[in-house]
């Protein structure tokens, strides 16, 4: 009978937590690898349009963003609800785009300057008038590679 006698000590041995930091570090590295830093804080509300023939934007360092949408609620008093352009962290006018692009381009390395992509990140309810204006400004600034940001959807 003594063969199956239970041991005296009933309590659970303490769990070793020494591998916990390693697990968390693994998670950390995973997130560092798959995510990207936020480009800016949005001041406009953007719901991207949906499309199917999407291409990934490669080489993030060569991409400059133009945001178009109606201002967030805290800016409504000052800027109203019509679509506005946001460059970097502030609201801008169409006329400022050319200078913005020229400045951004001259800050780049010379060999990267002509592969710069401008990504137009606009709300799906924006009117085309403002987009056409932006496109004309980009043409004048010789930023011809553009990208309309969109989210993916299933085809019809």
């Amino acid at each position: 009978m003594s063969k199956f006698r239970k041991k005296e000590k009933r309590g659970m041995p303490a769990l070793s937590t020494s591998s916990l930091p390693d697990i968390i570090f693994m998670l950390l590295f995973f997130f560092m690898a798959v995510t990207t830093m936020k480009e800016v804080t949005y001041k406009v509300r953007i719901t991207p349009p949906a499309a199917t023939e999407l291409q990934k934007l490669e080489n993030k360092s060569l991409v400059r963003y133009i945001y178009v949408g109606s201002p967030l609620r805290e800016f409504r008093d000052q800027y109203g609800t019509t679509s506005r352009i946001q460059l970097n962290d502030q609201f801008a006018d169409v006329s400022e785009i050319e200078t913005f692009i020229t400045n951004e381009r001259s800050a780049m390395k010379e060999e990267d300057q002509n592969v710069m992509t401008v990504s137009i990140n606009a709300d799906k309810d924006t009117r085309m008038g403002i987009i056409s204006d932006i496109k004309q400004a980009l043409r004048r600034a010789y930023a011809l590679k553009i990208n309309y940001q969109a989210s993916s959807r299933a085809s019809y």
């Binding site: 990207t36 499309a51 023939e53 999407l54 291409q55 990934k56 934007l57 993030k60 991409v63 990504s119 496109k135 980009l138 043409r139 930023a143 011809l144 590679k145 553009i146 990208n147 309309y148 940001q149 969109a150 989210s151 993916s152």
Partner: peptide, 10 residues
């Protein structure tokens, strides 16, 4: 990840 339609302006 940013996805979009690539176009080239004239």
């Amino acid at each position: 990840t940013s996805m979009g339609l690539q176009r080239r302006l004239p």
